[in-house]
């Protein structure tokens, strides 16, 4: 069963305004850890809010574990980018609120563990905490309800590397122990590569890449050579850079590459930067349920 499935998902903030999400289709398998990447304003936060049920699509549908979003709210944990909590609350208040608002499925010991791992005083006020400590408390509130789908909107944006590492460990521990699905939006693409197994790349409200990271990387090649650029015309070129010493390109091979070209599998960073730097490159959807074989060169709309 898919944890999250979008079909023609469209969202506009105003009725006649531009689409923040434009006919997005994807499927996120249960148990996957998915990176949601894109430029600022690409629609990442909007997609997460739609999945969390705090906003609703203009058209199209979004299902969580096969049910409408509103019907599965208890199974979804959402950490917004700004982590809005009342500054005058104490940490213990936040944990109590979590317990009281999630009767029957609140793991108090686990939430307290997350807080204790950060050496935080439960009686400390939230406005006395650093950014990283605040994030830890907000994450305890999200994970304490033991959600099956965790939506995190740039949770590590204001954290130092060590805190990022610790929080990522906590998150992965929960996902592994509980079999939860994680959709995490972040700009730290190099760190995502080590953690995530799926990728959703949004650009200007449209889905540019979707699927397993290994599959996506395998479907691309980073080539360098001194041959003419026209030798690559048979392949789907995502981005191309020409210099005096030759040509470098990120492409989706359609058959064998010319032997004069050096070809390597790109890194996740290169793949993401290649697509973000080339808005006209055709999208690729390798989502398992929607499309078992690559739909090369076809827009996802």
């Amino acid at each position: 069963m898919s944890a999250l499935q979008a079909t023609g998902l469209t969202h506009r903030h105003r009725r006649r305004g531009p689409a923040t999400l434009d006919a997005v289709d994807f499927t996120l398998p249960t148990g996957s850890i998915c990176a949601l990447v894109g430029r600022n304003g690409a629609g990442k936060s909007t997609l997460l809010e739609l999945a969390a049920g705090v906003d609703r699509p203009t058209s199209g549908s979004l299902t969580v574990f096969g049910k409408p979003v509103g019907a599965t709210r208890a199974r979804v944990g959402y950490l917004p980018q700004d982590q809005p909590l009342e500054p005058s609350w104490r940490i213990i208040d936040v944990l109590r609120i979590g317990a009281q608002l999630n009767p029957g499925h609140w793991d108090a010991a686990y939430a307290e563990d997350i807080v204790e791992q950060g050496d935080l005083d439960p009686w400390a006020r939230l406005d006395e905490l650093s950014g990283g400590q605040h994030t830890r408390v907000a994450l305890a509130l999200v994970l304490g309800k033991r959600p099956d789908l965790i939506l995190l909107d740039e949770p590590t944006a204001d954290l130092d590397p060590l805190s990022r590492h610790e929080l990522t460990g906590t998150l992965l521990g929960h996902a592994a122990e509980h079999g939860a699905t994680v959709l995490i939006s972040s700009h730290h693409t190099s760190e995502l590569a080590a953690v995530c197994d799926h990728l959703l790349l949004l650009d200007a409200g449209r889905l540019r890449l979707a699927g397993g990271i290994d599959d996506l990387l395998e479907a691309h090649r980073h080539v360098t050579g001194t041959g003419g650029a026209d030798e690559l015309d048979a392949h789907t070129v995502v981005t191309r850079q020409e210099s005096g010493r030759g040509t470098a390109a990120l492409l989706r091979p359609a058959g064998a590459l010319p032997s004069a070209w050096d070809s390597v599998v790109p890194t996740l960073d290169e793949l993401i930067l290649g697509y973000l730097g080339s808005p006209t490159a055709p999208a690729l959807d390798l989502s398992p349920a929607l499309c078992p074989s690559p739909r090369e060169g076809q827009p996802l709309t």
Partner: peptide, 18 residues
């Protein structure tokens, strides 16, 4: 209700459908 996803079964299908 118009700005959030309601909890009943017809939700998740967009504003027009709701």
């Amino acid at each position: 209700r118009r700005r959030t996803v309601p909890t009943h079964a017809s939700s998740g299908q967009g504003r027009a459908a709701d």
